[in-house]
Design a binder for these strands. Structure first.
Lengths: 190, 190
DNA sequence: AATTATGTACACCGAGCTGTGTGCTTACCG
DNA sequence: CGGTAAGCACACAGCTCGGTGTACATAATT
């Protein structure tokens, strides 16, 4: 982050503007929210001129959508690909959240943007469905009698924990995990 | 609402400014969100001059806090006081939501304001705790082995359904209700 | 009838927002 | 070396927002 201290003439950060902008988005949109983060501040953090930012993203809305698209990689997928765990263990592992996560950014975006037609809102829906589907297929592997239902239920637990953690400012994922255990035990015949 | 069409001189709505403002808040903050509702629009809907609004509420923040405080009455409490239901039935009745509810305004406020110290955020926390407590006492009446735990679990389900309904734009309360049934059956010894 | 509380109209302020226009500088690549 | 793509600084347009100042009008109370 600080490897390119100051350019030759006291300015200029180099060529990776696009990535720096997205990186700053991740940080600021998460910490402050989307609406409370101005493009000026974002550009300052990204060490990018405003002009450059608008050459990479035609509007803030577009940046927000791209920010959500880039978010996924290092959050959920890791859980589902762990071959060292049984499917049943994988379902439960989804509830082991680092506790540093402020709020699922997809929920945050949907609430803040308040427009179901916003590209970011649409992507948030797609993502939520994808997570539920992932949980469902894993539930199937685990031998659940009704995998779709279990997947949807577990997804609801994740969202509930995320929302509640945000509002109450206390980690609600253990509670969700406890419920998940019960549901899984009930849904998978011994 | 339209009983006082136009004042004697083509203006003036009468004395209930305070209530009209709060009423407009309920409508607009719910439908559009807090940040996307300006005081100008709010005053127009409330048929109140901006000056009057700021004589009743010193700031928008204060209005938001009061809006949340006034929200409660006709939502949850009705469920817990129904003597025609057994405690167990009351717990389940909490999940019968009219489906018109856009999003729990407490979650919305906490996400939109993004400041845990905001009076409205604090009240949202208090309210959420109160709901969990209500559920817990009802769970105790129903004979649950660990009422506090069950109360917290059911509260999480409600929040999960609310958040998920908002993001996915589909009613998630039936799913939550199904989970609740399982939890209740597991928590209350036959 | 006089007083007081309440409400009104409307212009205005300063701040912050998204987004541009312009002219210049630097880094890369053939 | 020379051309081009990428990035820069900086001012500014145009808008909306929260909030205020001022002078006036009406309603309830006494």
């Amino acid at each position: 982050m600080t490897e390119l201290e100051k350019g030759p003439q006291g300015r200029r950060r180099g060529r990776g503007a696009h990535e720096r902008i997205l990186s700053a988005s991740q940080q600021l949109f998460r910490d402050q929210g989307i609406n409370r983060t101005g493009m000026d501040q974002l550009c300052a953090v990204a060490q990018v001129s405003k002009r450059t930012a608008y050459q990479h993203f035609t509007s803030k809305d577009e940046l927000v959508a791209e920010y959500l698209r880039r978010f996924d990689p290092d959050v959920m997928p890791g859980v589902f690909d762990r071959t060292d765990l049984t499917p049943r263990e994988r379902l439960l592992a989804a509830f082991d959240i680092p506790a540093s996560t402020p709020l699922c950014p997809y929920i945050g975006a949907a609430v803040e943007l308040h427009d179901p037609d916003h590209p970011a809102s649409q992507y948030a829906r797609d993502y939520k469905k994808a997570i539920a589907a992932r949980l469902a297929t894993t539930a199937r592997e685990a031998g659940a009698t009704d995998p779709e239902q279990l997947g949807e239920q577990l997804a609801l637990l994740l969202d509930g924990a995320a929302a509640r953690t945000r509002v109450l400012n206390t980690d609600s994922f253990p509670t969700a995990s406890a419920i998940a255990t019960i549901l899984i035990n009930n849904a998978i015949p011994a």
